[in-house]
Amino acid sequence: MSFLRKLLAVINKDIAAEMHTREIISAMLVFSLLQLLIFSFALDLHAAIAETVAPGVLWATIVFAGTLGLNRSLAREQRNSCIDGLLLAPMSRSAIFFGKVAGNFLFMVLVEAALVPLFSALFGVALFRLSVLLVLGLGTLGYASVGTLMAAIAVNTRAREVMLPVLLFPLALPVLIGAVQATGGLVSGGSLVDVAAWVRVLVVYDLVITAVSLVTFGYVLEG
């Protein structure tokens, strides 16, 4: 119970801070909407190729916007040595990790909630299906998990804004490939059974990256 209470305290703190400033969500939202508009102008997405290109465009948008949010989320902990305040508290490092992952996941999901309807309208693909939302959730969770770990490493470096994508993108490749392939299969009319192999990739990735992050997160934060 204590673990859960402290995890919730970390999540609530991130939400309260975000409600005061809106710096993470607004940055992610504006960036992702601009990116989406640029893609829609740059690519001639007539119906024949929209289904092929749309999943890649969607996940590229989510990933780039998510990277912005991850950077800011961990930078907030670094400011005034707040991360030391968390590390000093009588709580396990895993509660800090899960709290930060949950916060980052929540912010990404909120941005996706605004992004998906606009994306569906611009690209003419139907994303409002439970199966697509499930893939979105699994992909976002994996990206938020590995991103939180990498952001904790990058935040201690001088060029953290550059360092995060350099560290994160290679490690996030399996979840991105899985998410793009699964989303592609679903928007072109397939069912969850048809993309079961890719969904399994996402589930396994989420479990493995969470386990690895739990073991290493404390060491990363303590330096």
Binding site: S2, R5, K6, A9, N12, K13, A16, A17, E18, H20, T21, E23, R76, R79, N80, S81, C82, D84, G85, L86, L88, A89, P90, M91
Partner: peptide
């Protein structure tokens, strides 16, 4: 320490309440 360990975005009271929850 040299850093205040306080969240700039939260109020004075919210900061203390947050740490009070972490320390039960």
């Amino acid at each position: 320490s040299h850093g205040t360990m306080l969240y700039d975005e939260l109020t004075a009271e919210q900061n203390l309440r947050f740490y009070a929850r972490l320390y039960d």
